[in-house]
Amino acid sequence: MKRILSRTALIAVLVVLTSSAIPAIAQQTPPQQGGAQSAVPGAVLPQLYERGGARLDSGDYTGAALDFSLFLVFNPTYSQGYFARALSQIGLGDHTAAITDLTHALDFAPETSIRYTASVLGLRGQVYQEDGEFDLALDDYTSAIELDPTGDNYANRGFLLARILRFDGALEDFDHAVELLPDVPLLALARANVYGQLHDNAAAAEEYLRFVSLTQADVRDGGTLALDGTPSLVPLTNGDVVLFNFEGTKGQLASIRAEASSGDRVDPLLILLDESGTPIAANDDTSNTDLSATIRRVELPDNGTYTIMLTHALGGDTGDVLIAMLLQES
């Protein structure tokens, strides 16, 4: 079955860390309780579970819930059946029933199935988070980490801590997550956003650049930008990196803005690099509700050739972006 609660999708939804967006319930396979080959080892009428799984995979949440309910009639202490029915209830939008089933899944989980138990806790935490029960969600995420300190579990708690504006704790969790999952671009983006919230602009810029190194697919020269604020139109899709060079003088103030053109909802990311390629400023979202990117009045540290890097931050859609730069004397 496809996954009903993708951590990657979760991260994507929370690119703007302080927005009201919360994890979307997508698709996840019910984890197995133990190491047996069968999805439901030792169960009575396992075909009910398998049919429920197929219905869950196809989006027939009502049919899946019915099959899992029948399965549980014959297997009332089978933890995985409750977990699977909880996924169906989430698909139906019945979070109260899902929480009840996930709690039963924990009650009947084998003591030796540590990773399975952590998965159930993680899912219940995400449902609590979606319902605004942040303290309960935090408890579940913390318990999941104590059982199974994976990058996914640290990321889940990190996003919640960022959501409730506890940025120091969020950064610590993202540090753990990145150490365990170093090649996940959206974790780099999330950590960069937290650095920005903590006003560590240099660290944020470095992390944005790492995000670009993990996602770039097509690097191209964007040509010459006007320095008087006149915008240029640039098509942008995931993986695109568009470079603009300009000559700057020490002490000049550089302001850059990139925003979707009319009718598009694109999520641009801007990074300003000095002549050595060191990032000196970056921005993803101008505000919690504005996907445009803005670098405001950054003082250039030296004379030389500077580079503006325009890329896609993976939120919104692909489309055309208007980019404008204003270079002023201080």
Rank of each mutant, 00 (worst) to 15 (best):
I25W: 08
G93C: 11
T8G: 09
A9V: 14
L138P: 00
A258L: 07
N303Q: 10
F246D: 00
G304Q: 10
L147M: 10
L189Q: 05
I90A: 14
L273N: 03
G222V: 07
P23V: 06
I308V: 15
G34N: 15
T224K: 10
L327W: 00
D218A: 11
I164F: 06
G59Y: 07
H95P: 00
L236T: 04
L243W: 00
D60M: 02
D152Y: 03
N288E: 15
E133L: 13
S213C: 05
G53W: 00
L273I: 04
T230Y: 08
I295F: 05
Q216E: 15
L102C: 06
A86Y: 05
D152Q: 12
G53Y: 01
L270V: 09
T142V: 09
Y195N: 11
G125H: 02
D60Q: 05
T311S: 15
D218S: 13
D240Y: 01
S330Y: 08
L270Y: 02
T249P: 02
H176S: 14
G35N: 14
L72T: 08
A24T: 14
S330F: 08
D290A: 10
G251A: 07
A98V: 02
D284I: 01
P30M: 03
A86I: 06
L17I: 13
L87I: 11
P41S: 08
G34V: 11
G239H: 02
M309T: 13
G35R: 10
D139H: 07
G277Y: 06
D317H: 09
L10P: 00
I11P: 00
R124I: 09
T29Q: 13
N245C: 04
T18H: 10
A109F: 05
E206Y: 06
F108Y: 15
P268M: 09
G42T: 05
R115A: 15
G59P: 11
S262F: 10
A64C: 08
Y208Q: 06
P185Q: 03
L136N: 10
T289Q: 11
F74Q: 13
A282V: 08
G222R: 03
V120R: 01
I11W: 10
T18I: 08
D290W: 04
R220H: 04
A9M: 12
